Simulated assay, not measured.
Amino acid sequence: MTSWFVKKRQQKTAVEERTVRVPEGLWIKCDACKELIYRKELVNTHNVCPKCGYHFRIDVSERLENLLDLGWTTLFDNLRSTDPLGFVAAKAYKDQLKKLEADGQTQDAVVVVEGTISGHPVVAAIMNFDFLAASMGSVVGEKLRLGAERALEKQCAYLIVSCSGGARMQEGTLSLMQMAKVSAALAKLDKAGLPYLSILTDPTTGGVSASYAMLGDLNIAEPKALIGFAGPRVIEQTIKQSLPEGFQRSEFLQAHGMVDRVVTRDRLKDFVTACLEWMLPARD
């Protein structure tokens, strides 16, 4: 009877179990090799996986820091997209634009700057995938045209770093018109003998790849970037055939003459510098 009222002591284990909590954001999984990478390690590798060489997508500020010398000036930052067609879908276009601007996305889907690369004056346009997948709308086309005009005025090279899902469907035909407008502006640079370098990153698709992204005097791509017009699945369904391995990737396009050179991110600035030294007249 007395044993009913005796509290039995639980035996303590030699090593108590402890839960280790890892702060969020310290590690990131590589989309290619699926390995975990210490996020701070990516700072030293230009956001390239140190295990397999996968190039993570980077934002505009990181791209500018990696490619241009310090001291660039932003151009045409007063232009804003409107809703010319009164587009209404699951989310109204004008509401999307308001939210993006409230979140600090005030440059639309492309940032145009004037600066230097290893001392060479350039005008550079960097597409911003965080703004509606860097879709090409009227403001994007106008800023790219103005960038070409600025390069013509300054008699310097023009660079466009493309990363886009293509034309902006919310602007319909107005978006498609930008393909011709930007291409015409680039033709003026060609006539003036000024170099236009197109840098293709992952992804570069749709109307962007079908126009200015593939019109460079040199088309330079990052490794394994997806570059094409329609997606591989759409093409397979259309032609009823399986596509070759690596189709629409940088290396495949280089092998078939669509891309001039595939360059890793850590060598991109040096490669562009060498191209500018070769393509531009000697400086005094």
Rank of each mutant, 00 (worst) to 15 (best):
S3L: 12
W4K: 12
W4L: 15
W4I: 09
F5C: 07
R9C: 01
Q11T: 13
Q11I: 12
Q11G: 08
T13E: 13
T13M: 08
A14Y: 10
V15W: 08
E16Q: 15
R18P: 00
V20L: 14
R21H: 11
V22R: 12
V22A: 08
G25M: 00
L26C: 01
L26Q: 11
I28L: 09
C30G: 04
E35V: 09
Y38G: 08
R39H: 11
K40Y: 14
E41V: 12
T45N: 14
T45G: 14
N47M: 15
C49N: 09
P50S: 02
H55T: 13
I58M: 05
D59R: 06
D59I: 07
D59L: 04
V60M: 03
S61R: 11
E62W: 11
E62R: 14
R63G: 11
E65T: 09
L67T: 06
L68F: 09
T73E: 10
T73I: 08
T73D: 07
T74V: 06
T74F: 01
L75A: 05
N78V: 10
L79T: 06
R80S: 14
T82N: 14
P84N: 07
P84T: 09
L85K: 10
L85G: 05
G86D: 10
F87L: 03
F87K: 06
A90K: 06
K94I: 05
K94A: 01
L97V: 00
D103R: 12
G104V: 11
Q105L: 15
Q105H: 15
A109H: 07
V110C: 13
V110K: 08
V110L: 11
E114G: 02
S118Q: 06
M127L: 14
M127I: 09
N128D: 15
D130K: 12
L132N: 13
L132E: 11
G137R: 07
V139R: 02
G141D: 00
E142F: 05
R145G: 01
G147F: 00
R150E: 15
A151H: 00
E153Y: 13
K154A: 12
Y158L: 13
V161K: 01
S162T: 10
G165Q: 05
A167G: 12
R168W: 14
R168Y: 15
E171Y: 01
A180S: 14
K181F: 12
A184V: 04
K191A: 13
K191V: 10
A192T: 03
G193K: 10
G193H: 09
Y196F: 15
L197P: 01
L197R: 03
L200R: 05
T204Y: 06
T204L: 02
T205Q: 10
G206D: 00
G207Y: 08
V208H: 02
S211W: 02
N219Y: 01
I220P: 02
A225W: 05
P232E: 05
Q237S: 15
Q237N: 14
T238M: 04
T238S: 09
T238P: 00
T238I: 07
I239F: 08
I239K: 00
K240Y: 02
K240M: 04
K240R: 04
K240A: 08
S242I: 00
Q248K: 03
Q248R: 05
E251I: 05
Q254M: 06
A255G: 09
M258L: 15
D260N: 13
V262G: 00
V263D: 05
R265F: 14
R265C: 14
R267Q: 14
R267E: 13
L268T: 08
D270M: 07
V272M: 01
A274F: 04
A274V: 00
L276M: 06
E277R: 06
P281H: 06
